[in-house]
Write a protein that binds this DNA or RNA. Structure first.
Length: 586
RNA sequence: GCCCCUGUAGCUCAGCAGGAUAGAGCAUCCGCCUCCUAAGCGGAAGGUCGUGCGUUCGAAUCGCGCCAGGGGCGCCA
């Protein structure tokens, strides 16, 4: 609808430009807005005010000329000049009535568009290290990334969802070593667990599997394991050196094959758990991209060579540095450590280079806000490699703080005391969790009220919207019981009977849906959609309370049923995009 | 110290490529089920948009300073 109005204005502008009222080359794209107040009509355009200076005439005079030049349209019932020079459009009721058969005919596709023209977009999100189960912090990134991806797909982008699996590096070695130490404890070895090891119960579980299936095949005495290992922090040593020593012990005592086995067991167990967890959360990927594969395929080395060849690397104190300050970073960064190991950053550059090499026109990374410092250096690297860093967008998601009974839920990753995503799903359900996570702008610090998410009342926005859907279904079931035939093939027949203020308000909201989807997608702001769904549900509930649908007047009843069918369709489509179910009964 | 995010009603938040009287939900108060699910609806009350300048016809929205809260600044991942 908005587009049609925009076209009318554009034509009018062309026409007055050809009359020489304004210079042809200075006509901006006309901006059409929904009016905030329906006394100002349905749409408003401020073009006359914008152009007044250029045309050297008063906004209201200019507006008059534009209106005179407007081509006739069936949509528009009335056009007025208001205030300082707004051009207000009033649509005819028939414009809204004709929307209903459109929505019903398009069904699931109503609101979808081809705006993205099939452009390939990659969305990488969550990508948590597989060193433990996902926690509620990852949940927000998961929900947000998933909805952004779905929205982009809905407006016609070719979307590729990806999880970057950090299956290499020191953290994974720490996990493998933690598992092994727990295993040794299960073999009745006595030892002091390292401060820096992973202490969660899931580590015990993996160790138990190792023990159950392999007996004592991986056993070594703790004395042997801890021999020559530098002291841990509580013993006056350095916790980093201590854990590195233990990793070396593990590699040395177990040998390549057995160490690899423990390592893989840990990795696979956790990764399977993460996959399962996300899938139950309605989050699915086209690809799980292995970091290790970047090293194994030589991509990391290739990247480093390319950087070296283009003169962006230098050596200092035994390490290899990338001169990221040349591209606006605040300091240079190490890509290869003095021990010869490439850094996580080196893999990251290789990964992002690979993304662009795979031909994505746009690459979106959803990161936790704590990673914001990495943005300049990754972009710097892409630039150094001759790629276009503007193809990469990083969406930073702020943390969520859980509240239960009005109290902050304390969490600490270090001690292993965090609320997992799985626990959250169990407590409030996947629907509520998904909806709550995307209800707020991603850069907004979020207070997640567990009690509210659980409450089965209209206070809970998820139930509120779902209930509207269920209510429509209930009315339709009621109609079926009474043997009322709903013939949706009749197009706009009887729809002229919809003239109540509540009905027109609902129709206006329905007409906004495609605009909301487009705006949510293009701005990566799912909260616009949840906000809209709440408004639509509210208008439906109001209508429901004010009018009876299953009335004796056949034509009126038919029109009303068609209207609520359209409402149901839009609620269903919108909830679908958020990843929330649309129950038929509650 | 530097960088990022945030500051709008008692609480949680919308609104921010400048535009017409700043919105919603919760909480508070007053009403509405012999009628399609009251998991619902209506009404009232509630705000110098953190603060000071500036840009302009017009600023919650843009710029700069200041104040307050959160996060980040490793040869960690």
């Amino acid at each position: 609808m908005k587009i049609q109005i925009q076209q009318l204005i554009a034509q009018a502008l062309e026409s007055i430009a050809s009359q020489g009222v304004v210079p042809v080359d200075q006509i901006p794209e006309p901006v059409i807005e929904r009016t905030r107040d329906n006394r100002h009509g349905d749409f408003a355009c401020n073009i006359a005010m914008v152009l007044a200076k250029i045309a050297r005439s008063k906004p209201r005079d200019l507006a008059e000329k534009i209106i005179a030049a407007l081509p006739p349209s069936e949509l528009v019932a009335k056009v007025e000049i208001a205030g300082p020079g707004f051009i207000n459009f009033y649509l005819g009721e028939s414009a809204y009535h004709s929307l209903i058969p459109q929505i019903i005919a398009k069904g699931h596709d109503f609101g979808r568009s081809e705006l993205g023209k099939g452009k390939r977009v990659q969305v990488e999100f969550v990508s948590a290290n597989p060193t433990g189960p996902l926690h509620v912090g990852h949940g927000r990134g998961a929900a947000y990334g998933a909805v952004v991806a779905d929205l982009l797909q809905a407006v016609g982008f070719d979307v590729h969802r990806e999880y970057y699996v950090n299956d290499a590096g020191r953290q994974m070695d720490i996990l493998a070593t933690s598992v092994w130490l727990r295993y040794l404890e299960l073999c009745d070895e006595t030892l002091t667990f390292p401060v820096n090891g992973y202490k969660g119960d899931y580590v015990w579980d993996i160790a138990a599997t190792l023990h159950r299936e392999n007996g004592e095949a991986y056993k070594h005495s703790s004395e042997e394991v801890f021999r020559d290992v530098p002291a841990d922090e509580p013993a006056g040593g350095d916790k980093e050196k201590h854990i590195d020593g233990l990793i070396n012990s593990a590699k040395h005592l177990l040998g390549d094959n057995r160490y690899r086995f423990v390592f893989e067991l840990g990795l696979n167990t956790i990764l399977d758990d993460i996959r399962d967890d996300l899938s139950l959360f309605g989050v699915n990927y086209e690809e799980w991209y292995s970091e290790r594969s970047l090293t194994e395929s030589g991509a990391v080395n290739r990247t480093i060579e390319r950087l070296r060849a283009s003169g962006h690397l230098y050596e200092n104190e035994g390490a290899l540095w990338f001169r990221s300050t040349d591209f606006g970073d605040e300091k240079d960064r190490v890509v290869v450590r003095d021990n010869g190991q490439s850094t996580y950053f080196a893999s990251d550059i290789a990964y992002h280079m690979d993304k662009l090499e795979r031909g994505f026109e746009r690459v979106i990374d959803v990161w936790g806000a704590d990673h914001h410092g990495y943005v300049p250096r990754v972009k710097a690297a892409l630039q150094a490699l001759g790629d276009d860093p503007s193809k990469m967008d990083v969406l930073l998601v702020q943390f969520a703080i859980l509240y239960r009974g009005g109290e902050k839920v304390q969490m600490s990753t270090r001690s292993g005391e965090f609320v997992t995503l799985r626990e959250l799903r169990k407590e409030v359900g996947a629907d509520a969790a998904r909806f709550f996570y995307v209800m707020r702008k991603c850069e907004q610090h979020m207070d997640f009220d567990l009690d509210l998410a659980k409450s089965q009342s209209s206070d809970n926005p998820v139930y509120y919207v779902q209930y509207a859907h269920a209510r429509v279904c209930s009315v339709l079931a009621q109609a079926a019981e009474k043997g009322i035939n709903i013939d949706i093939s009749e197009g706009a027949a009887n729809l002229e009977r919809l003239s109540e203020a509540h009905e027109l308000a609902l129709l206006t909201s329905l007409s906004r849906y495609p605009e909301v989807v487009e705006s949510s997608a293009m701005n990566e702001e799912p909260h616009q959609l949840t906000q809209y769904l709440r408004e639509l549900a509210n208008e439906f509930h109001t209508y429901y309370n004010a009018h009876q649908f299953l009335v004796d007047d056949d034509a009126l009843r038919d029109a009303r049923i068609k209207l609520i069918l359209a409402v149901r369709q839009v609620l269903r489509n919108g909830l679908g995009l958020v990843g929330v179910s649309a129950p038929e009964r509650m």
